[in-house]
Simulated scan of single mutants.
Amino acid sequence: MADPLLHIPVMLNEAVEGLAVREGGRYLDGTFGRGGHARAVLSRLGSDGRLLLMDRDPQAIATAQKEFAADSRVAIRHGNFSTMAEWDETSPGLDGVLLDLGVSSPQLDEAARGFSFMADAPLDMRMDPTQGESAADFLNTADEREIADVLWIYGEERFSRKIARIIVERRNESPITRTGELAALVERAIGRREPGKHPATRTFQALRIRVNGELEALQRGLDAALDRLKPGGRLSVISFHSLEDRIVKLFIRDHSGRVQGSRRGPPVAAAPARLTAIGKAQFPSDAEQTANVRSRSAVLRVAEKMPEEGRA
């Protein structure tokens, strides 16, 4: 298991400050990872505070159990944050929800998990290896059009059709089972077109998102968080690519009570206001980006649930 001390939490202070933690509040960290954000939240809680920890990765939950199980203020659950509303611990309502999206550094760094093309390993990519189909399962059973659609939609890969065609041609000879094999296929298909960026970057991102159902889970998780947050409760979300950030941005906007529409059509009646954005999108400082290269694409958005009387 990766050493949790080697994991550097992204935008730690900004994300936790966004929660406006109160000593006696109840908070949920839906993406425990290796606990960087959780430790910071817990350090601000008093004896009456409550911290709920979730993660879909069994290794992350093992770390949480080892470090926090003895703390009476902490409850731990193995599961996707999209199911938070199904957990009885969230029934009293939450004063804050923190989500640090995407793949964690320990998952990337452990070659056997199959998330990275930097080392040859089984082509898995599941955040929860105990369920669902692996990336290899998907690539070896999906038709060419579905593979191309996944690469285009989730990876914004311009050469998605060409890559999909080569994948299908290769698997007809023998199944694709290794990260190194897939990375080599992509490089053969499109070459090294972007300096400083491996040609398989978008393909691996797309497959990871598809295999883990990340965007669908995010939408369900945001809905669940809004349902469980108390009035005045905060939602603090760190995204790492435009697809995630767009979902978060539109979710906050769509629940802000603002009139939607375009200049070419009549305005659309606004839904009742349930959220208000706290400040603008935040980005890592230059110093953090220098110290932690994986923080460079991070975007933090914070919103607060409005009191009932504040609804339109």
Rank of each mutant, 00 (worst) to 15 (best):
D120E: 00
A287C: 04
L94R: 13
G25K: 03
H78T: 14
V268I: 15
P175S: 07
E169H: 07
F81P: 09
L222S: 13
P307Q: 12
A277Q: 06
A135E: 09
T203I: 03
W87L: 14
V237N: 12
V299A: 00
A75N: 13
I76P: 08
E173Y: 01
S91L: 13
E89P: 10
A189S: 11
R145A: 14
V74E: 11
R202Q: 14
N140F: 05
K197G: 11
A136H: 13
A20T: 02
E288M: 09
D254G: 01
I252G: 10
H198T: 13
P92H: 01
H241L: 12
M54F: 09
A184V: 08
D71Q: 05
A38F: 12
I247S: 03
V168S: 08
E67R: 06
A2T: 03
A269P: 11
L12N: 10
G213R: 07
L12E: 15
P199H: 13
Q282L: 11
S174F: 01
P175L: 07
A312T: 15
G261N: 13
G114C: 00
L185A: 06
A312C: 13
D3Q: 07
A303M: 06
G310C: 08
V150K: 08
Q59H: 15
R113P: 00
V268R: 14
A277N: 08
A121H: 01
A111N: 12
F251R: 11
G232M: 09
E244F: 08
G279P: 09
D3C: 01
G49K: 04
E308W: 08
D124A: 07
I247A: 02
L250N: 15
R178E: 06
E308P: 07
D149R: 15
R39G: 05
F159Q: 13
Q59E: 15
D227T: 15
M84L: 10
A189E: 06
A60C: 02
A112P: 00
K162N: 14
E308C: 04
G35R: 06
I252Q: 14
I247P: 02
R44V: 08
E309D: 06
L98P: 03
F81D: 03
D149M: 14
G25S: 07
E67D: 15
V293N: 09
G25L: 06
V150T: 15
I247D: 10
R178F: 09
L151Q: 12
T290S: 14
E304H: 02
N292T: 08
V16A: 00
L215G: 01
L6V: 03
E23I: 02
T276F: 10
V299Y: 01
L123I: 02
Q282T: 08
Q260A: 11
T130E: 10
N140P: 05
I61T: 07
D71L: 12
T290R: 14
M84Q: 03
I278D: 04
L139A: 12
D254E: 14
R50G: 08
D137C: 05
A206E: 02
V97W: 00
I278H: 04
R234M: 06
A303F: 11
W87I: 14
T203N: 04
K66Y: 05
D286H: 05
A270R: 12
D29I: 00
A183K: 11
V211H: 04
A273E: 08
D29S: 01
H255I: 07
D57Q: 10
E67Y: 04
L185M: 06
R253N: 13
R294G: 05
R202K: 15
A62M: 01
